[in-house]
Design a protein around this nucleic acid. Structure first.
Lengths: 177, 177
DNA sequence: TGAAATAGAGTGATCGTTCTATCTATAAAA
DNA sequence: TTTTATAGATAGAACGATCACTCTATTTCA
């Protein structure tokens, strides 16, 4: 991948996540990424296409982060707790402003169908991933609700408090599974 | 409260919730509420102040909705489940696009401190309300995570599925309380 | 008679996007 | 090694549309 392209994606991801999609203009992204306006438009046809590619980029980052942390986790008897811990580490490292996918869907609900579709696809993808780890459909949904809850709670609550509440809930819900 | 003022608040609440704060312009609100531009500005000094008053309005609506539904709920042995059911009814009636407070905080994170402060205040208010129902601090946080999770999951998942997963989780977490 | 609401023009700023004209850097041809 | 050709990146002006907000002049209604 082109270095310029990567610079744009990283600046856009940071700005959009911190301030929202409609609140951040193309000029801000260009300025932050040290790239010219035309270079951005040579790589991305439009703002909406940039957002779509950003969501691809972020899904890949989240999934590989989870994979790595789950495989490194030493807990052996509780898969859900392994995944929850990995998700908690993701939140702690990157994300105190909600789920970027849900936020994209919320902002483009009545404006850009491809973005909304992409978000639904992502959430389905995560559920499928949980099932591929060996959870049942119902367990996947149940864990998914916990993951979403932790992400939201972390927006307004001290992260160590969220960790304790989140992991103990998951532990209770999935013990002796 | 003035009728015109009420009209503006209702139109703004609907539009902001459906499409986001930055995505909706004042002209759209004026147009939807059948009120003139100057009338809006006579009632609300600025867009940000309108949003702040909207959050007041919505907090009041949510709290009284919860109070009514909790008191009418016939479950006698599980307070958390009563509250969860009431929250589920709120989601089903009004809210398939996330938590309006979190969305306000996300969009105004680096732009308007009073809005961000108001959102933190709201979340603290909800926790306090849960405690005033008789839950411990830890139980309140635990239930709060479930409420946030249900709100988020309802954005991309069939509402009856959310209801089943949500209520069964709360039931497991709070049984024999 | 006086206060409130109206429509609509006007403010300067910013939006996403396009265009132009200049510059840089690498690679092929001399 | 020098010249030329090609492609990519640059800054910045310009587009029409919209942003939040103000002002004015007129109308409605108690």
């Amino acid at each position: 991948m082109s270095k310029k392209r990567q610079d744009v994606l990283e600046a856009a991801e940071c700005l959009f996540y911190e301030e929202g999609f409609h609140a951040v203009g193309i000029k801000r992204i260009v300025s932050k990424s040290n790239v010219s306006l035309m270079t951005l438009y040579n790589h991305f046809e439009s703002k909406e296409i940039l957002i779509l590619e950003l969501l691809d980029h972020r899904e890949q980052a989240y999934v590989s982060f989870l994979k790595n942390h789950v495989s490194q986790n030493k807990i052996t008897d509780n898969l859900a707790l392994k995944i929850a811990t990995a998700h908690m580490n993701w939140l702690e490292a990157n994300s105190f402003n909600g789920c970027m996918f849900l936020r994209a869907k919320e902002e483009y609900q009545n404006e850009c169908e491809p973005i909304v579709d992409r978000v639904h696809q992502h959430k389905k993808f995560v559920i499928d991933m949980l099932e591929s780890y060996g959870l049942s459909t119902e367990e996947s949904l149940r864990l998914s609700l916990q993951l979403e809850g932790a992400t939201a709670l972390a927006e307004t609550t001290d992260i160590q408090t969220v960790r304790a509440v989140f992991l103990s809930s998951v532990n209770t819900l999935f013990k002796a599974s």
